[in-house]
Amino acid sequence: MKRHQDILDRLAKEKHLEVLDLCEILNVSAVTIRKDLKLLEQKGLLYRTHGGASLDNPYINERTVLDKEKISVEEKNGIAQLAASRIVENDSIMIASGTTVQALSKYIKAKNKLTVITSSVHVVLHLIHDSNIEILQLGGYIRHSSASVIGNYAEYILKNVSCSKFFIGVDGIDLEYGLSTTNLEEAELNKKMLDAAQKVIVLADSSKFGKKSFARICDLSQVDEIITDRGISETNRKKLEEKEIKVTIVDEK
């Protein structure tokens, strides 16, 4: 059926599509689109999501930081380098765990003095040689798969600190579900880190859009900016900007 091929062709370009957008594009009802998506999913050609469809499985399984480091390396480095330009002189920032924010630490050059609060062991190891950077390593249990801290000790410290920016990497960004990660304790710590920051900046390559994982971090209303690569679909970009989220794309002219 031509309509089915149109859906698949658009998905190949957009990676994720909403039912309402397909209704408008193909001029058919939501009931018809949902039937189409169900049939195409049964054939193994796409995955249905809440309110839409995706070419990739929208549900994320946990992977180690070593595995993640090998994925979308060029995109992550570009995002990290751009994110580093957001740091100003005498700034006080917070950095979560994850390979994209870990890459950020490689590009940080302290302007006079910089204070960094982080849950990531790898971030500390990257920054420790710069005497202009004052580091507050959050304490607690180490989560082996992400080489980061989790638990009540870290959350207690965060009750007594504040910073200008929070740089966070995530496993999934869903327009309805929000930001998510694979570990519930890490999500809880991220919530506390988010509360201690004046501005929330998400660093995520385009493969993270339309995905959701077990542990929800926050609604998108709490996000100020998302820095990503050119693979983000125009639909996702438009909907994020409608939510008053600044979307910055690496290498965009």
Results as ranks from 00 to 15, higher is better:
Met1Ala: 13
Lys2Arg: 10
Lys2Glu: 11
Lys2Asp: 10
Leu8Glu: 02
Asp9Gly: 05
Asp9Leu: 09
Leu11Val: 06
Glu14Tyr: 01
His16Ser: 15
Asp21Ser: 09
Leu22Phe: 05
Cys23Tyr: 00
Ile25Leu: 12
Ala30His: 08
Ala30Lys: 11
Val31Met: 13
Thr32Asp: 08
Lys35Thr: 06
Leu37Ser: 05
Lys38Pro: 05
Lys38Cys: 08
Leu40Ile: 14
Glu41Val: 04
Lys43Cys: 09
Leu46Trp: 07
Tyr47Thr: 05
Arg48Ile: 10
Arg48Gly: 06
Thr49Glu: 13
His50Val: 13
His50Trp: 14
Ala53His: 08
Asp56Phe: 14
Tyr59Pro: 05
Tyr59Arg: 11
Ile60Lys: 10
Asn61Cys: 12
Arg63Phe: 13
Leu66Gln: 13
Asp67Ser: 11
Asp67Phe: 12
Lys68Arg: 15
Lys70Arg: 13
Ser72Asp: 15
Ser72His: 15
Glu75Met: 04
Glu75Pro: 00
Lys76Ala: 01
Asn77Pro: 00
Gly78Ala: 10
Ala80Tyr: 03
Gln81Thr: 08
Gln81Asn: 13
Leu82Arg: 13
Ile87Met: 08
Glu89Val: 08
Glu89Thr: 08
Glu89Pro: 00
Asn90Arg: 10
Asn90Tyr: 08
Met94Thr: 06
Ile95Val: 15
Ala96Gln: 02
Gly98Lys: 04
Ala103Glu: 14
Leu104Trp: 06
Ser105Glu: 05
Lys109Thr: 11
Lys109Ile: 10
Ala110Arg: 04
Ala110Phe: 03
Asn112Gly: 02
Asn112Thr: 10
Thr118Trp: 04
Ser120Asp: 07
Ser120Arg: 03
Val121Arg: 00
His122Met: 07
Val124Lys: 03
Leu125Val: 05
His126Ala: 05
Leu127Met: 08
Ile128Asn: 08
His129Ser: 09
Ile135His: 14
Leu138Tyr: 04
Tyr141Met: 14
Ile142Lys: 08
His144Glu: 14
Gly151Val: 04
Asn152Thr: 14
Ala154Cys: 06
Tyr156Trp: 10
Leu158Trp: 10
Ser162Gln: 05
Cys163Gly: 15
Phe166Trp: 01
Ile168Glu: 07
Asp171Ser: 11
Ile173Gly: 05
Gly178Pro: 06
Thr181Phe: 03
Thr182Trp: 04
Thr182Phe: 05
Glu186Thr: 12
Lys191Glu: 03
Lys192Ile: 05
Lys199Cys: 10
Ile201Asp: 01
Leu203Asn: 07
Lys208Ala: 01
Ser213Ile: 01
Phe214Lys: 09
Arg216Phe: 01
Ile217Cys: 01
Cys218Arg: 00
Ser221Gln: 08
Asp224Arg: 06
Ile227His: 02
Thr235Pro: 00
Lys238Ala: 12
Leu240Cys: 04
Leu240Phe: 09
Glu242Gln: 15
Ile245His: 02
Ile245Pro: 01
Lys246Cys: 13
Lys246Glu: 14
Val250Cys: 11
Asp251Lys: 15
Glu252Leu: 15
Lys253Cys: 08
